[in-house]
């Protein structure tokens, strides 16, 4: 008879996916967007990505060591936060800004709450917003894409959303001609944060997440759908003042937000019903901030606000338990 017999209560078999595989899956899903970022913004993008990733992993390990906790950087969650943070920074972010962001993301908004699974707010978004409010100049110094090997020098420019906002504030209507068309927006040939640029690359990654069943359709569909509907209503009311829904979809951080940031499991509702409510909330807040807020972009604020509402949403969207549905006998 064997010397080692395991005694545990059922079940005795388990599904394959582990936490680290989920994290790795999301990282794989972000690779196309990272690739596009490096292509359009060159070496600075690569540096920012590397700094943010290694910064986050380093801060996590240091923090856990300091708190005498087991070091869990192998689960990949810190690396993922780092990549998401980088994708939320402008291409020419100074090194100290990136590292400060990594510190805020990992130490302030994750480890202090107890580490993975216990943070109420999306760490990368908290870092982005802290940096945006504290260092508005550095965080909104946009450059036009200068594709690798194209020989073009990076020139300062505004994001499409920024152009729209400025024009509406100054003249009361949208600019008569925007730099770039929908095709450029789709591919990512426009100014913006590293990860905001290519809707196509992000959609590819999002599709991978759906196929791998790492995320479900609820949050992206509810978020993007409610944005399109609400933006569409404003556009129909006054198309000269409010941009069309497609413009909303393809510019700024919406795709990144709806597919990768709002879908962060830790900070979003746990049931499908709750995720739909949350996604719609994100969409409404995003459109309202974009159209009426002080900032041209509202995705980060919208998601963080809905993160705050997540416990409440969870409470009111519990599934109808088995045996509580009236059926006729």
């Amino acid at each position: 008879m064997s010397s080692q017999l395991y005694l545990s209560s059922s079940p005795h078999v388990y599904a394959g996916d582990r936490t680290e595989q989920i994290m790795r899956g999301v990282i794989y899903a972000l690779l196309p967007a990272c690739g596009v970022a490096v292509y359009f913004f060159g070496l600075p993008a690569l540096v920012t990505l590397a700094l943010a990733t290694f910064g986050c992993v380093g801060f996590e390990a240091a923090c856990q060591k300091a708190m005498k906790q087991p070091v869990t950087v192998k689960d990949g969650s810190a690396a993922l936060t780092g990549i998401l943070l980088a994708l939320n920074l402008p291409p020419n972010a100074p090194w100290w800004l990136t590292l400060l962001g990594a510190f805020v993301a990992i130490v302030i908004s994750k480890q202090i709450y107890g580490g993975l699974g216990y943070n109420p707010f999306n760490p990368a978004l908290v870092a982005r917003v802290v940096l945006l409010i504290s260092f508005p100049v550095q965080m909104t110094r946009w450059t036009a894409p200068a594709p690798l090997f194209s020989g073009i020098d990076a020139v300062s420019t505004a994001t499409p959303l920024g152009q729209a906002k400025e024009s509406v504030m100054l003249t009361g209507s949208l600019p008569s001609s925007m730099q770039g068309g929908m095709g450029d927006f789709l591919l990512g040939n426009m100014a913006g944060c590293l990860g905001e640029v290519s809707a196509l690359a992000l959609l590819l990654g999002g599709a991978y997440l759906l196929v791998r069943r790492i995320i479900t359709w609820h949050i992206p569909v509810a978020y993007l759908g409610s944005t399109v509907v609400l933006a569409g209503i404003f556009w129909l009311v006054d198309g000269s003042r409010y941009p069309d829904p497609l413009f909303h979809l393809l510019t700024g951080g919406l795709m990144l937000g709806a597919l990768f940031m709002a879908t962060d499991m830790v900070t979003s509702p746990i049931t499908g019903r709750g995720q739909i409510v949350y996604g719609i909330g994100c969409g409404i807040l995003t459109v309202l901030i974009r159209l009426f807020g002080g900032y041209p972009e509202g995705v980060s604020f919208a998601i963080l606000l809905m993160n705050a509402a997540t416990p409440l949403i969870d409470r009111y969207t519990q599934p109808t338990k088995f045996g509580y549905v009236e059926t006729k006998a």
Binding site: T19, V266, K321
Partner: peptide
């Protein structure tokens, strides 16, 4: 590990708890 709140247990639960 810590709960990720991924919701897989909720989706799988036939008692819908």
């Amino acid at each position: 590990g810590p709960c990720l709140r991924c919701g897989r247990c909720v989706r799988a639960c036939p008692a819908r708890i």
